[in-house]
Nucleic acid binder design. Sequence first.
DNA 1: TCTTACGTACACCAGTCTGTGTACGTAACG
DNA 2: CGTTACGTACACAGACTGGTGTACGTAAGA
Lengths: 211, 211
Amino acid sequence: MTELEKGPQGRRRGRGARERILSASQQLFRDQGINRTGMDQLCTVAQVSKRTAYQHFAGKDELVAEYLRRFDPDVMPGVFDRTDLTPRERLLAAFEIPASTPLCPYIAAAVELHDPEHPASQYARDYKTAIAARLTETAREAGATDPEQLGEQLALLIDGASARTRVLNSESFPTAAAIAAVLIDNAIPASSSRRPGDDRATTSNSARPKR
Amino acid sequence: MTELEKGPQGRRRGRGARERILSASQQLFRDQGINRTGMDQLCTVAQVSKRTAYQHFAGKDELVAEYLRRFDPDVMPGVFDRTDLTPRERLLAAFEIPASTPLCPYIAAAVELHDPEHPASQYARDYKTAIAARLTETAREAGATDPEQLGEQLALLIDGASARTRVLNSESFPTAAAIAAVLIDNAIPASSSRRPGDDRATTSNSARPKR
DNA sequence: TCTTACGTACACCAGTCTGTGTACGTAACG
DNA sequence: CGTTACGTACACAGACTGGTGTACGTAAGA
């Protein structure tokens, strides 16, 4: 569980305090929100002295930023790399993330911090942009006439489902998925609605097109 | 501007302190968020003594709840009562609220308070439900095959645009409106683009695809 | 005029927040 | 062994939070 934090070399840099702090952050920020979670409580949960926490992170803001950065790799991307699915199926699969994401932490952070200049808000924007780009890319593979529009639309659906789930306390992703299905079918010319890939993008470059 | 707060009778109950407090709440909660706005600051802006504020509101929570309750009447409803528009146009008109709503205050409150039991969170849920109901109702008038589904879908679009606008700092309502147009066209059988039973007719609604 | 309700000014409380300073382990590596 | 880096324990600072207590002002209505 607690892996050595820094070096792939033999030299160990610590005994997992940083990991415990970030792990506790994820739990507490998700369950209680950022503002309602004090550093004291966080350190208690992380079983770390306050002093140690402030030796790892210059301040709470930095911790929050790092906490958000942690999500980057493992929320969405898994969906986009599934070569067993057609591009169209991949787009739809993006809406099957029900229980794992209570509320998109990026939205929560942006609202809670309430400061567009905050580094965490920057991360949030970057992430949202990246997701939209991925969707656009996949939409292009799927043969959408206006991939950018479709990508942006699908991104909006995800955020809408996220926000609505939070406010209403009831799952909204199925609704979003239904909309997505309609949009996708409408955006892809009838000729290529079923056949994946067809002439262009013969999956040779679609595996990892960029980044 | 500052109207006598309580009685339509001649008897006046105060000199507008309560109104000033609520007015200041709207401004500050919107600009800074709820949690980041202290009662001290709020009272200063409202030009009201702290003591007075706490004589009008039992606590900050109550003030927040009342602040949210204030929005109820004048955000959406205006759209639904416009008899000069066809039901279909009314549905689309719901997405033309760009500058007026920075971020749906209900979403913001639900996220910031982070407590579903909070009275303000209740208001938020009630409001969202009411909006969806209105949309459903109008969808039914417009002749949608599944009005409830369409209503819920459109509500999700609104929230998605709201959330996304907040996180990205860029207007997302046009995107939502475009989706709405597609959904509406898809949900209403081609034969009955107008309300069945009522002869409001004016069949030329197909000539105005947007706005 | 006096009464009464509304509002003000200001000090103050207790609790929490982020963030430090200090002194003390302890395990790894030379 | 000693050095060094990491981590701990704990008290404390300073600002800010929501919320009160007290004494006073003031305008409306009788």
